[in-house]
Computed example of a mutant assay.
Amino acid sequence: MATTSGHGRLVTGVAWALLLLGLWLWGREATEGPGGSSAPTHGDIAAVGRPLGVALPPAHAPLTRAAEPRRVEIPSLGIAAPVVARGLDADGAIDPPPFEMPQTVGWFGPGTQPGADGAALLVGHVDTETRPAVFYGLSAARPGEKVRVTRTDGTVAEFTIDDVQVLPRTAFDPSRAYGQHHPHRAELRLITCGGTFDRAAGTYSANVVVSAYLTGAA
């Protein structure tokens, strides 16, 4: 995700309209900016979906104690970043971490907490005008790799990646990207911009969506 010249903040590559209390979380892509780096394209090639033959562990029961995320780590990608809660801005889009915090991950606070029943949403910038950001290498994630989320209650929720997709903006299916894949399971979505950057349109062509599910807690 990248800034537009003259704008005071970095605009997120993905945003959600809030439909709670029996409704659904529906997504919409709202990236703007000059695209400081074109390298997400090469990373997108690595996105592998859910390949056959990858042994995945059984799901852990959802955690019942409420706790917000404070830190996320993906050891295989060298990602270790603080997490801050974000809501919706005046346009109904998720308000990302400020431009001055490109190495910080935003959690959609009105939604599911990581480790709870449902799909928790974490969004990070892929780049700035000058350098890679926190989720620059996200599309290189592989099924079977671990994501660890440290929570405010002191627990570390461990998730196992089971799906990596690059979803084009055209014919975008928000339920596929952000909805819970299996009932009564604690799931996680890590989301950033992907595809190629169209300078004329001011948008990236796709979203990278990494899906994971809870497999342990300590």
Rank of each mutant, 00 (worst) to 15 (best):
G124N: 08
G124M: 09
H125I: 15
H125A: 15
V126M: 07
D127W: 03
D127R: 09
E129Q: 08
E129G: 07
T130D: 00
T130E: 03
T130W: 02
R131S: 10
R131I: 05
R131K: 04
R131G: 03
R131T: 12
P132Y: 10
P132A: 01
P132F: 06
P132M: 04
A133F: 13
V134C: 01
V134D: 05
F135E: 08
F135D: 06
F135W: 15
Y136C: 13
Y136L: 06
G137M: 03
L138E: 04
L138A: 14
L138G: 15
A140C: 03
R142E: 10
R142A: 11
P143H: 13
P143M: 03
P143G: 00
P143W: 06
P143A: 04
G144C: 04
E145K: 05
E145I: 10
K146C: 06
K146H: 08
K146F: 08
V147C: 03
V147A: 05
V147T: 07
R148G: 08
R148F: 05
V149W: 02
V149S: 10
V149F: 11
T150R: 13
T150F: 01
R151Q: 08
T152K: 04
D153N: 03
G154N: 06
T155M: 04
V156L: 08
V156S: 06
V156D: 02
V156Y: 04
V156F: 00
A157L: 01
A157Y: 02
A157C: 07
A157P: 11
E158W: 01
F159I: 08
F159L: 04
F159D: 00
T160C: 00
T160R: 05
T160H: 00
I161W: 02
I161P: 01
D162Q: 01
D163Q: 10
V164F: 07
V164Y: 03
V164L: 12
Q165I: 12
Q165M: 14
V166E: 10
V166G: 11
L167S: 14
L167I: 12
P168M: 00
